[in-house]
Amino acid sequence: MSTQPNWRRIQGIVLDAVGTLIRPTPSVAAAYTDAAARQGIELNPDEVRGRFNAAFGDDLVQGADGVLSTDESVERRRWRAIVGRVLPEVPEPDRAFDELWDHFGRPESWSVFPDSVPAVEAVQEAGMRVCIGSNFDSRLHAVVAGLPELAEVVELIVVSSEVGYRKPHGAFFRAACERLGLPPERVLSVGDDLENDVLGARRAGLSALHLTRRGEHPADPANIPDLSALAILRGAEA
């Protein structure tokens, strides 16, 4: 079965947020290293990056409804656990968590990828609806609102803590489709996480493309190197 989307059927797109439309600026490793340094702990950013990747990949905390279930309180506990694993040396872990939670909730801690807005505008001009679908929490609303170039082109935002389930759970993708007012077979998911944004979406009945900004698996036709490829692919089949 082809993994390429049938563009004649696609009427809506769910775009992941972090790593797809926006990126932390400075990097996550830098922000965590700085938080430790404010408590007199000097850490190697590369080591911090490795710790974060390992902790983020584990489902450390889940809600009452089982694996991948979540809400605002669950996300806060989850991130507290992640900070604890990444910065076990700091003498005031609660302070480190509070600083990092606030940091990543501020728009100035994020930047928009240069290809994000042009890509969204191009697919919207082609008649498609667009929403942001993210495993962030409610802080994402303020982050997007504080990034004017992105806020002007994307109005719909679906976050896991408000849906009740994180990607790749099918309930998340069903909620995104409902927000778009479209059935799953008419919706395309695009993101940089293979399991969360691509495989999970396909299991829920959506089409999906894997954004591989770092060049992973470039020969796979279901991969795109940047978001500008969305408009190119859509135009080629129009």
Rank of each mutant, 00 (worst) to 15 (best):
P118E: 11
S109I: 00
A122N: 07
P114A: 15
E108G: 05
S109L: 01
F113A: 08
P114F: 06
P114Y: 04
E92D: 15
A119G: 10
A122R: 13
H103P: 03
P91M: 11
G127Q: 14
G105E: 01
E125I: 06
E92P: 06
F113M: 11
Q124T: 13
E89T: 05
P91Q: 09
V123G: 13
F97M: 04
V112R: 09
R106E: 05
G127E: 13
L100N: 01
R129K: 15
A126V: 07
P91C: 12
P118G: 11
E108D: 15
G105I: 00
E92I: 08
L100T: 00
V90Y: 04
P114I: 03
G127K: 10
R106Y: 00
P114S: 14
V130C: 10
S116A: 15
V120W: 03
V112Q: 08
F97P: 03
P91I: 08
V112H: 07
V123D: 12
H103W: 14
W110H: 03
S109C: 03
D115M: 07
P107T: 01
A126F: 06
A96N: 02
V90T: 11
F104R: 00
R106C: 03
W110P: 01
R106F: 00
P93S: 12
L100Y: 00
P114K: 09
V123A: 13
F97G: 05
R95M: 12
E89K: 05
D102H: 12
W110I: 00
E99P: 02
E121Y: 03
V130E: 08
V130D: 06
W101R: 06
A122K: 11
A122E: 12
E125C: 10
W101K: 03
E108Q: 13
V90R: 05
P93F: 09
P107K: 01
E92Q: 15
H103R: 14
E121L: 14
A96W: 00
V117L: 07
S109H: 00
W101S: 07
R129M: 12
E99M: 09
D102W: 04
P91G: 14
R106A: 13
E121P: 04
E89A: 14
A119D: 07
A122M: 06
G105R: 00
S116C: 08
E89Y: 04
Q124Y: 04
P107H: 01
G127C: 13
V130Y: 02
E92W: 12
G127D: 13
E92C: 12
S116M: 06
E99I: 02
G127I: 13
P91R: 11
F97S: 03
E121K: 15
V123R: 07
F113G: 08
W101N: 09
S116K: 02
W110C: 02
V117M: 08
V117D: 06
V90I: 12
D102L: 12
P118D: 10
M128Q: 11
A122Q: 13
G127L: 13
D94Q: 14
F113T: 04
D115W: 03
D102Y: 04
D94V: 05
G105C: 04
G105V: 00
A122P: 07
D94E: 15
V120L: 13
E125P: 03
P91Y: 06
L100K: 00
R106P: 01
D102C: 06
P114T: 12
E99V: 09
D102T: 14
H103C: 11
V130M: 09
F104E: 02
V112G: 11
D102I: 07
R95T: 15
D94M: 10
A126N: 08
A119E: 08
V130H: 02
D115E: 09
